[in-house]
Structure formats: structure tokens, C-alpha cells
């Protein structure tokens, strides 16, 4: 088994916020805490608008973990980054470090502990007995322990947001990308990662936008 990962397919994400409320529903996440949210870039710009659902990415080399002064973070064998709220002091260093804005600092009383950091758990609960009230109150539901995947992905309206074992997720995504003729290489950040002007990127982009061969209509 590989690591647990989220993947958001920007060709599919329509900013319906189903993932956001699925998370709220499953974990009774209080007002003001956004464990998951959808961001839209170039909002309203014809041809350039893209939406993307973002939460904790459960980094393999997690900056939050690296900077935490109380070392409250741990990573599970499945690659899920979790933390112990009893140890967290709510300082916000992880908030500085996280490139995705995942750590949340609720106004009050959240998950039984004032001021402690809260974030996406990949529906894996936390360091309390699995399925216990204590786990639910501090961290939310533990779906992984029930053999289920994060509800945000399971309920995604267009199946844009995928979650699970990275091997399974990439298999689903690959099948999809092949079917749509190579799109997906235009994923957010592709040109940043591989260079706008590179021959490779241009070829891929051209392949992706090439017209579909004309189909014969019934009117002829």
C-alpha cells in the first residue's frame, strides 16, 4: 500500500462546495473553521477560470511538523499527518509554514480545546481510541478505521476530488486523462513546474486542444 493522498482534478471541479459541507457534516466542524475549502483563480475571466479544492495535503515532508515547537505532529504509516491537540499550544507556527493554509485557529471552544490548531485529518481521527467520543470531539470521525475514505472526496459532485491510496487515486486519474485525450497535463501548476516555453509542454498542450475529428451528423 502507498501513502494516502488527495487529488483535485481542475478539469472537473465546479466549486460547488460539496466537499466543504460534507466535511462540516461528517465532523460537525464549527462555524469559522475551514478544514477544506474551494479556491477559484481568475474568477470570472473567460477561458482562465479554474477551481480547486484544498485542504491539508498530508505532505510527506510536512513543514508544519518541522516547525512545531511542541512536536505535536505525527505521521501515520499510511502517510496521514495528524496532531495531538493536548500537546498543541496553538502558537500558529504551522500556520506560517503551511503553503496551503490548512491549519485553522478557531475562535473558541473548538473540538473541546480552546485555541488549539485544527485541520483536515483525512478522516482518520486522532490520538484517541478509534471511534470514541473523545476522538470525535477533538478530531472528528474516523472513517479510515471504518474502512471508508474521506467524505469530501466520496461525496464530490463531479468526482473531481479523489482520495485514498495514491496508487488507486492515480489509476483512476490516469484512466480519466487518457479518455479525455491528454487533458489534465494542463493541471494547475503544470507550466510552473515544467516551463511554459518548453517544447514538451507545448506539444502536450497542442495535443490536448487538438480538435476532435469531425463526426458525421445525422442530417447528411
Amino acid at each position: 500500500m502507498a501513502r494516502m493522498k488527495f487529488l483535485c482534478d481542475t478539469e472537473r471541479c465546479i466549486e460547488c462546495n460539496g466537499c466543504v459541507t460534507a466535511c462540516k457534516n461528517e465532523h460537525e466542524v464549527p462555524w469559522g473553521v475551514q478544514r477544506r475549502r474551494v479556491v477559484t483563480i481568475n474568477d470570472g475571466v473567460v477561458g482562465q477560470e479554474k477551481s480547486l479544492s484544498v485542504a491539508c495535503m498530508h505532505c510527506s515532508d510536512a513543514p508544519c511538523m518541522a516547525v512545531c515547537p511542541t512536536d505535536c505532529f505525527y505521521r501515520t504509516e499510511e502517510g496521514v499527518v495528524l496532531h495531538d491537540k493536548d500537546v498543541c499550544i496553538g502558537c500558529g507556527y504551522c500556520f506560517y509554514a503551511c503553503p496551503f493554509g490548512a491549519p485553522q485557529f478557531p475562535q473558541s471552544g473548538t473540538f473541546g480545546l480552546r485555541g488549539k490548531m485544527d485541520k483536515c485529518t483525512f478522516c482518520a481521527g486522532g490520538p484517541e481510541e478509534d471511534g470514541s467520543e473523545a476522538e470525535f470531539e477533538k478530531y472528528g470521525k474516523n472513517r479510515l478505521a471504518e474502512g471508508k475514505l474521506p467524505l469530501c472526496a466520496e461525496m464530490c459532485s463531479t468526482k473531481a476530488l479523489l482520495a485514498g491510496d495514491a496508487v488507486e487515486v492515480s489509476n483512476i486519474f490516469r484512466e480519466r486523462v487518457i479518455r479525455r485525450g491528454g487533458k489534465g497535463v494542463e493541471a494547475i501548476g503544470w507550466s510552473t513546474a515544467y516551463g511554459k516555453g518548453s517544447a514538451d509542454a507545448d506539444t502536450r498542450a497542442a495535443a490536448a486542444t487538438a480538435p476532435v475529428p469531425e463526426k458525421t451528423g445525422g442530417a447528411q
Binding site: 462546495n17 460539496g18 466537499c19 460534507a22 457534516n25 459532485s157
Partner: peptide
């Protein structure tokens, strides 16, 4: 106490928007 996706539904295959998921 809980809401689970109905993957079996031929209409939504478990999927929901913000309203359905809440």
C-alpha cells in the same frame, strides 16, 4: 447521526453538491 454517499444510485453515484452534502 450520519450521512453516507449512495454509490449505488445510478443518478448521482454517491455525489453531492454543498446542499446535498449538508
Amino acid at each position: 447521526v450520519g450521512q453516507e454517499p449512495v454509490f449505488d444510485s445510478p443518478i448521482n453515484l454517491g455525489a453531492h453538491c454543498a446542499k446535498g452534502a449538508s
